[in-house]
Amino acid sequence: MIQTLIKNEPVIAEKKASYPKKKNNKIILEIKNLKKNYKDVCAVKNISLTVTQGEFISIIGPSGSGKTTLIRCVNRLIDATEGEIIFDHKNLLHLNNKELRQARAKIGMIFQHYNLVYRLSVIENVLHGRLGYKSSLRGLFGVYSDAEKEKAVEIIDMLGLNEMIYKRCDQLSGGQKQRVGIARALIQDPKIILCDEPISSLDPSSAKIIMDYLVRVQHDLGITIIVNLHQVDVAMKYADRILGIREGEIVFDGSPSELSKEKINEIYGTETGELILD
C-alpha cells in the first residue's frame, strides 16, 4: 500500500479532477453541540459537525476564533465543557483512562512546532507513535517489535527521510521535522489525523511539500485529515471541504468552490477587498 504512494506523483491533479469524489459516507467522527469555556472566555460555542471517512477538511478563521480549541477537544487534549464527541462509534467523553489511550492511538496529531524529542533520532521519534499500543513497561524502555521497526523504515522511506533515519531531530530543517511529525502520526495507523497549523512555521516550498504529503495520506491511505490553516488560498487548493469559524461558531461549511470572497470576508470579519489574497 505504501509502495504505491511513492510512485504516485500526480496525486493532486488527479484528485482535483475527480472531485467531488464518491464518498463511502461512513461517518468517522461526530461532534454534537460542543462547547468549551475557559473561565470567562467562551472559545467554542455549540459546534456540531459530522465527518465522513476519507475527507480532507480545512478549518479557517481569524486567530482566536477557536480553531485550536475545537481540534484539541477531539482527542481530549482539552476537555470540552459540554457536548458529545463520537469517534469510531465511541463517545470519547465517557471513556476511562485505558479506553481513552486506545482511542487516541487511532487519532494522529501534527503540530505547528513539530513537538519532537530533539535529542532522539528520527526513527526513535517515529516509533513514539506506537506507544499508545504498548504496555507501560515496553513503552518505557522503548522495546518495539520487528514489524513495528519495519513499518517505521517503510514510512520514513515514503516521506523521503531515508538519509536522516539516524540523525538527531535537532539537526533537521523545519520541513524535515514536520515530515517526521507526519511519520509519527502515520505509524499509529490512525483513522484520522488532526493538524494544528502544520505549515505556519515553514517556508512556502516546504509548506507545499507538507501539504502534498497530507493529500497523499488522505488519497492513498484513506485517512481522514482535519487541518487548521491560516492561509485561505492553501485551504482552497487542498481541501475537499472548508469550515469557516468565527467567534467559536461555524459560519461556513462547504466545498472550496462555494467559498466566495464575500463568505471569506464574513468569516474574517473584514470589508470586501480588505483581505489580501494572492
Binding site: L77, R101, I107, G108, M109, L116, L131, G139
Partner: peptide, 9 residues
C-alpha cells in the same frame, strides 16, 4: 502533549 495525544501514558 504530542505523546499524550498519541495515547502514551
Amino acid at each position: 502533549e504530542a505523546l499524550r495525544a498519541s495515547g502514551a501514558n
